[in-house]
Design a protein around this nucleic acid. Structure first.
Lengths: 247, 247
DNA sequence: CGTCGTATTGAATGGGTTCAAGTAGCGTGG
DNA sequence: CCACGCTACTTGAACCCATTCAATACGACG
């Protein structure tokens, strides 16, 4: 396990700087976190329901998602994650996984021992607060998804998640001009939003026909931001961004 | 603002002890937190969407709930809270409220300045970790609600929330023998679970007719725990309790 | 005893699901 | 180079869980 005072952790730093302010010492300490880097193929589990992991996964490249399986093949996707995210940071204090974590695309993943993170938090309170804040924003996103699933119709839910992921990617410099990668399948999207893949398909066609988004499946092109964000009732306050990545 | 080294904060201590282990010093420091106590009538806001609070609210008695209002009177309830909870603890690190917090019943509420909590966290890392853990369990509950709203039918959702609130209350010594208070209206329940009040009403009648719960509206009596928890696919792992209150 | 919030009931409606087929794109191997 | 197989996307039709609307009952409280 190398002490990675190199560029590997740049996505994490960039993410943390987008939501908090780090002292120079804290930033260096984050850079110096012990980490093992792995390349993981698409659709592989990084952590499973009931596991008791001893490390956290930081996404360096690629997309991941958290999910929980129920009876009869039902699945609820809980979140999507992009480079810089630590999707299982909660495992630092919740010792049993209550859901699973898997890759969407091929990913470079950094494994950071809980030990290292705990030491960081004890020595650098501002790093601890930044990580805590990260988990709180995670929770704020859950709340927003609950609102969508509970009270918005299918068009609005889909519009909302497009806006959310675009802003998240933009904040870490991975999107601009209302375009970004979209590796998520229609079935994934349905399982995230409490919809069937069939209905997701019909709504997407409708959004395309209305000229809100581009025709591609694998790239998200937002053709009419104002209309899409209005449809999704999207207000980015809940993402609690402090600054955007310099392009 | 009295420094309350008295019994007022007992519910908070009891709650934290149910989810974490505190050193004696940390427990005393929690007890010594500066706090102003207020009595708040039912259905009053404790914090509003867009507010920038300078304190957190700890519930000493009574129930509260978090919610967000949308257009046309739509409302999503995000959580219910019971004595010992700090429903707006996230405001310690997220400076703008992205939802509102209100009382269900009359409540005794302790207002603790962020200042005091921040100082506690800096001096007592185990207290900081306990509070962080509390917010992570909060997030775990959001995830579980997402699963319910997204992928469970109305019967299952209602059964699930009954099990959850009973276990939460039991953990802090406020419920036993499968009975507890239930101050939540059917409309509240619908707004929490993404259902209409009308449908909640019909499902409740059905659950009563099946002998799973008692006939009262204002008290929850679980007549058949096994059947109710099976119906709700309830598995308390996600509550991450470390111990139950001594009765 | 009237009033307001909450619970209850019935009937019509609808957004989204389910089931079942069919299509399109792409990598693999013969 | 094309057949094969896999995965994702697309389409149509029947169905249903839950909503909506509208009216009625209940019960606590001043």
């Amino acid at each position: 396990m190398a002490s990675a005072s190199n560029a590997e952790l740049a996505p994490l730093i960039r993410k943390l700087e987008s939501i908090a302010t780090l002292s120079d010492e804290a930033r260096q300490a984050v850079h110096a976190l012990p980490m093992a880097v792995r390349v993981v193929e698409p659709r592989q589990d990084l952590a499973r329901d009931k596991d008791k992991p001893a490390h956290c996964c930081v996404l360096l490249t690629g997309w991941a998602y958290r999910y929980k399986l129920l009876d009869e093949g039902r699945r609820q996707i809980l979140s999507f994650h992009v480079p810089g995210d630590i999707p299982d940071l909660q495992s630092l204090h919740l010792h049993v996984m209550d859901h699973s974590l898997a890759t969407v695309t091929q990913c470079r993943v950094g494994l950071i021992p809980h030990e290292g993170l705990r030491a960081l938090c004890l020595r650098f309170p501002d790093a601890a607060f930044a990580l805590w804040r990260d988990t709180l924003i995670d929770a704020a996103i859950f709340r927003e998804w609950m609102i969508g699933i509970g009270r918005r119709n299918a068009h609005s839910r889909i519009a909302h998640i497009f806006c959310e992921m675009y802003v998240k990617l933009q904040a870490v410099g991975l999107a601009e001009n209302h375009r970004c990668a979209w590796p998520v399948t229609q079935t994934d999207l349905g399982d995230a939003l409490g919809l069937s893949n069939v209905h997701v398909n019909r709504v997407l066609q409708d959004l395309r026909a209305q000229g809100l988004i581009g025709p591609q499946d694998r790239d998200l092109v937002i053709l009419d931001w104002d209309a899409l964000s209005a449809l999704g009732e999207f207000d980015e306050t809940y993402l609690h961004l402090e600054r955007r990545a310099a392009a």
